[in-house]
């Protein structure tokens, strides 16, 4: 009987069919009996089964622990490597393209920022010159005393013109009326009107510009100071470190003139 062990060939199952009817009654009983009564043969089987269990668990664990590449053959590894190389080349070119895009966007942003900064600077300069923005800086504060009321509109207008010629950048009457290119000077029964606002002596003029140039512009022979003195008035020129011109005029867009460019 030992020569027919198990099902060493696949055809064994058919020949087993005859044995099946005879053996099926006692096969269960034999299984139970063997489970109750160990024997030497069982010890050998136990050792082999232990070996099998050990190997099986080892293989299962190493299979779960192993990474994808451990069991691969050389040709498979070469193929995997080629695939990874192609993938990394694609990723590299993608990175290069994205970096190029980022560089372009950065350049654009910087250019736009520079243009915005330039425009802001320009707006500020023009705002100070046009009188729409408050200004401060070195300059002089002129106080004209006129006890006899003889200082005329023309005298003040002369002063304004001379200050402008001396490089005045911002001018203000009585801390309240900004003097710009379109400012009007009028005289009526009640007194002097600057841009429609009445100003009374003593007239105070704040001017931003180079202090020494501005003050000398008032003092040359037969100039403003001379005229005021001739009218029994007096001129006092202060040079504070900072002159503040805080009044503004509303910005008005030109209605007739357009840019000539």
């Amino acid at each position: 009987m030992p020569e027919r062990f198990g099902a060493e060939n696949l055809g064994a199952e058919r020949s087993d069919a005859n044995r099946f009817d005879a053996g099926k009654a006692d096969s269960r009983a034999r299984l139970l009996a063997t489970l109750r009564h160990p024997s030497r043969g069982q010890a050998v089987g136990g050792v082999l089964l232990g070996l099998l269990g050990f190997a099986m668990v080892t293989q299962v664990q190493s299979n779960e622990r192993d990474d994808t590449y451990a069991g691969l053959r050389t040709s498979d590894l070469v193929q995997v490597l080629n695939g990874l190389n192609a993938q990394s080349r694609r990723a590299d070119s993608e990175i290069a393209g994205l970096e190029r895009t980022r560089r372009q966007l950065t350049d654009q942003t910087q250019a736009r920022q520079a243009a915005v900064d330039r425009a802001k600077d320009q707006a500020q300069t023009l705002g100070i010159l046009a009188g729409t923005l408050p200004a401060e800086g070195p300059g002089i504060r002129i106080t004209v005393n006129d006890p006899e009321g003889k200082v005329s509109l023309n005298n003040l207008l002369d002063a304004v013109e001379e200050l402008r010629a001396a490089g005045a950048e911002a001018m203000e009457f009585d801390d309240s009326v900004r003097v710009i290119a379109q400012t009007s000077f009028e005289q009526d029964d009640s007194g002097l009107l600057v841009d429609g606002h009445q100003v009374d002596p003593p007239y105070v003029i704040d001017v931003i510009g180079d202090p020494s140039t501005l003050s000398s512009a008032l003092n040359f022979p037969l100039g403003f100071s001379y005229d005021v003195k001739a009218n029994d008035g007096s001129v006092k020129v202060d040079k504070p470190t900072t002159v503040k011109v805080s009044s503004t005029v509303p910005a008005t867009a030109p209605t007739d003139a357009t840019s000539g460019q």
Partner: peptide, 25 residues
């Protein structure tokens, strides 16, 4: 080895189990 073990179990149920044959197979 699993194949051998199942073969042995079948032989055992057939009543033709032999431990020497099992070890060798």
């Amino acid at each position: 080895a699993l194949d051998a073990v199942f073969g042995a179990l079948r032989a055992f149920l057939d009543g033709i189990f032999n431990d020497k044959v099992f070890v060798i197979s």
